[in-house]
Design a protein around this nucleic acid. Structure first.
Lengths: 205, 205
DNA sequence: CTCTCAAGTAATCATTCGATAACAACCAAG
DNA sequence: CTTGGTTGTTATCGAATGATTACTTGAGAG
């Protein structure tokens, strides 16, 4: 039952640093689809095309692996936000919003960020998640120059997007009133784009 | 190691319906604190002061227990929203927002709702979570009479509150800039009230 | 009383999962 | 060409967990 979702062919003998990055990518997809506790290191390993013990050895523990995944995700997000800064000031929030939804194309990225916000009670992971959120907030305030209210609304909208994606409301668009209304209200001119990037309620992602 | 968190003394020989409700209350607290997958039926049982097999027998499976917990939480939320309807129309959104944060006092209620929004990919739970969200949205639109934009902003704000609570940002208030700013921006005149209701990063809740 | 059904427990099982250990194959430097 | 570090695997373990089974206890009806 070796699915090999990310890499069709296992690539033997890779430099450890590259292998780490490849595993992080696979782990982001799996953690994003099945939550932190719900994900097994074996699933991550098979998605990355390596053995389960090797994943553990490269990262130490499942917890440390997840911490690396979160840190990478928040860094990636800030990266994408930064690329959306240049241009007229009025369109900045919109460009950054688009940058956020475009991250949907990187499998698991948004779900991982969303899930991390529910783990503040975990001693280790919680600290990292708060730091990630704090980085985002400071970027929005200092680098993007958002006012307090702009920042609040922007982040709140992002959290609503997380909810829409996490609930897979996209699958009900057109069939169910609430889902249709929420999606229309959130993505006035990008509903189909978003819909094409979110998987159906059936598991894979 | 029997902690008996909810009920200090086990109440033997209760009518099954009452026992169910008592277990649901305990389960909400535990699921809210440790997520769905991260919670064991034994923890729920001990929090409710009964044996683990009894919990399983009363609800069939852990999944069905969680479904019952979610449905109860959404129903409870709508209940509280409904009680906030009467009064001047301008203050309605504010009253309903207060009703939401007041639910923090019922242990696990908000975290359970927040966590459910990340499980849309689960075949059974996902369906229930979407139905819960849909109920809330329709209540806000039809019963509360919110416009599309009002509804979107209101729900988005709720999701941001979920994030703040889930991340335990309340613990950083006063010590860290981002947490302080977010909390001030979200709860202009209720920061201390919210802070008093959210546990520290250390686990319990 | 006692009989019966509901309420509840102790014991136990089969899986699953993260982690560890021991070993194998590859490759570059001397 | 051989030696040593790096990259990886197979085998396996101990603990945890959801579920099942069989048993016990209490209370209310007749």
């Amino acid at each position: 039952m070796s699915s090999m979702t990310i890499n069709e062919v296992a690539a033997p003998r890779m430099k450890a640093a590259d292998r780490r990055e490849l595993i992080l990518e696979a782990a982001t997809a799996v953690f994003g689809a099945k939550t932190y506790v719900g994900t097994t290191t074996d699933e991550v390993a098979r998605a990355a095309g390596v053995s389960q013990p090797y994943v553990v050895r490269l990262f130490g523990t499942k917890e440390k692996l997840f911490v690396a995944v979160i840190e990478r995700a928040y860094a990636r997000l800030i990266d994408e936000f930064r690329r959306a800064l240049p241009g007229d000031r009025e369109g900045r929030a919109k460009r950054m919003g688009t940058a956020y939804t475009d991250l949907l194309a990187e499998r698991g990225m948004l779900p991982v960020i969303a899930n991390s916000t529910a783990l503040g009670g975990e001693p280790v992971i919680g600290r990292v998640a708060r730091a990630g959120f704090s980085d985002i907030w400071r970027f929005i305030r200092d680098d993007a120059g958002f006012s307090l209210d702009e920042a609040r609304v922007f982040i709140a909208t992002g959290m609503l997007i997380n909810t829409i994606v996490g609930l897979r409301l996209t699958g009900d668009y057109g069939n169910e009133v609430s889902a249709t209304e929420v999606l229309d209200a959130c993505f006035p001119d990008a509903v189909e784009h978003v819909r094409s990037l979110v998987p159906e309620a059936g598991e894979p992602w």
